[in-house]
Amino acid sequence: MSVDRNARRPASESPWRVPVKDLVHSAGIQRTLRHTWPAPEQVGTPVLGVVAGEPVDVDIRLEAVHEGVLVTGTADLTLTGECSRCLDPIEAGHTADLQELFLAEPSPEDDEDQHLIVYETIDLEPVLRDAVVTALPFQPVCRPDCEGLCADCGVRLEDVPAGHAHERLDPRWAALADLVDREKTSTPETEER
């Protein structure tokens, strides 16, 4: 599919799409951007991420290089979610490191995961998403020493008294336990017959 890179882009675009007309084919030129933009949709995992629309402070440098535009910088944002052990809410600041080369022309060597300059703009949304998601823990916790929930009753282990435990009966012995219970409840009249 051929893309006309000189055509006008649609008027209503995300702030994460940055015009780079001044940098295309101008190796050595650079500029910086410092903005606060709303977080795009689906930045994170189902357990921890950035709420869509929340402010993200972006501080990046755009540098024209021979192949296209090199983007480096950071994005400061707030992660929200829940602890994978106790299910308490988590809210934490996070700084994502952003670095990506946007190519002026597609490279024939690598067809996948290429970021291209399209309509003289670059789209930083996937760059932010990749930087945040790859840095997130697989199982986030509210604190490293979080004890979690009791596997039997679901109560937070930090809220129960010391020695909290539940009697567990191996299901293979359940039939024997029923016999013992019947033996204890049987009356002397029953035993004589």
Rank of each mutant, 00 (worst) to 15 (best):
L124W: 06
V155W: 03
P137M: 04
V127Y: 11
A151N: 10
D145N: 07
E158Q: 04
H115E: 09
I122F: 02
Q139D: 00
V141K: 14
R156I: 02
F138D: 12
D111H: 15
A135W: 12
R156Q: 10
P144V: 11
P137Q: 11
T121Q: 07
C153E: 13
D145W: 05
P108H: 01
C150I: 00
E109V: 13
Q139G: 01
Y119N: 10
L149W: 05
D123Y: 05
E112V: 13
E109N: 02
V133P: 07
Y119E: 15
V132F: 10
V155L: 11
D159T: 09
S107G: 07
D123F: 09
T134V: 13
D159P: 07
A151P: 01
E125M: 14
Q139R: 04
G154Q: 04
C153T: 03
C153W: 05
E158K: 03
T134F: 10
G148N: 06
I117H: 01
H115D: 15
V127I: 11
G154S: 09
V132Q: 04
P108E: 11
P140V: 08
E112D: 15
V141L: 13
F138V: 15
D123N: 12
L149D: 05
E120Y: 06
A131Y: 06
G154C: 04
A151R: 13
D130G: 01
E105C: 05
P144L: 12
